[in-house]
Simulated assay, not measured.
Amino acid sequence: MKHKLTLTLYSFLLVCCFSLCINAQQHAFDLNIVNYSDKPDANIEHLHLLSLTNNSNKVLNYSISSQEIICKTEYDDVVSNKIGDVDNNEEVVVNEKNSSSLTVEIYNKALSKKIDKMILNPNESIEFYVKITRHNNTEMGTLKCFKIATHLLDNEKAGKYVIIRTFIPNPNILRH
């Protein structure tokens, strides 16, 4: 009985330590939208400025990805979407066959090269652009949502994401 209680106590402490480590890594960095594109919805190209900050005391390697997801009503609040959430991969990804003809690319701040990985020193922050380009065959009058996610390369479970919504107006409707 005494050994069972000791084993239970050690198991509990181990789980607590593991949870703290995972939680600490998720707060080791921040992902935020600095500025949404200020161009009209009808523009073919939009640039959104994002920021990634390493809050830890060690050098961290990140991967950056994007995927189209099904839009939800909570994504309507563009102010709260500016602050990155912990990525638990609960968003429903749009089927590739049904995907819109929008291109999402991630560029460095100078817009000189595409990126999918970053290395940040302790307490360093870097800004980068998410470029969304509409093609001629994109469905008009639709709303598309994209999840921009960053993950630690050494721990894919530690990640954050932001949602960027893109409205493709119908040019036949007045004021578009």
Rank of each mutant, 00 (worst) to 15 (best):
E68T: 06
I115V: 11
N61M: 08
Y107C: 05
N32F: 00
I163V: 14
N172A: 05
R134K: 15
R175W: 15
A28K: 02
I22C: 02
E68V: 04
E156Y: 05
E45F: 08
H27I: 04
P40K: 11
C17M: 05
V15W: 07
N81A: 15
V93Q: 14
T53K: 05
S65G: 11
R134A: 08
K97G: 08
A24E: 11
I148N: 03
E68I: 07
T133M: 02
H46F: 09
R175I: 01
V79D: 15
N23R: 08
L31W: 01
N155T: 09
T166H: 06
L7S: 03
N81G: 13
C17H: 07
K109W: 04
V93G: 04
S101T: 09
A149G: 02
E127H: 13
E90T: 13
I106K: 01
D116Q: 09
S100E: 14
I115D: 08
N155S: 13
D77Q: 04
K144N: 13
C17T: 13
V59E: 09
H151L: 11
V34C: 01
Q26L: 00
L52R: 01
A158T: 12
I33Q: 05
Q25W: 11
A158W: 02
N88H: 11
R134L: 09
I70A: 08
L120P: 04
I33W: 06
A42V: 08
R134D: 10
I33S: 00
K39I: 07
K144A: 03
F128H: 10
L20W: 11
Y75C: 02
N32M: 02
M140P: 01
I22T: 12
R165A: 11
T142G: 08
A149L: 00
P122D: 12
N172K: 14
K131A: 03
S19V: 02
K109A: 06
T53G: 04
E91N: 12
Y107S: 10
M1S: 10
V78C: 01
C145R: 03
D41K: 06
R165D: 07
N54P: 11
N54Q: 10
I70E: 12
G159Y: 02
K147S: 13
N98C: 03
L102A: 03
F146L: 00
C17F: 04
N23P: 02
H27V: 00
I168Y: 07
S37D: 13
E74K: 06
C21H: 10
A158N: 13
P169D: 08
M140G: 03
D76K: 14
K114F: 11
L13C: 14
A28G: 13
N43L: 00
K147W: 12
S80P: 06
S99F: 00
E91Y: 00
L49P: 06
N155M: 14
L152G: 05
M1Y: 10
K147L: 14
V34A: 10
R175F: 15
K97E: 15
V162H: 01
V15D: 01
L111D: 10
K82M: 08
H3E: 12
T142S: 15
T6K: 06
V78K: 09
L153F: 03
S11Q: 12
I126H: 14
F12T: 13
V94P: 06
C17D: 04
S63V: 02
A158L: 11
E156N: 08
V92T: 04
S56C: 05
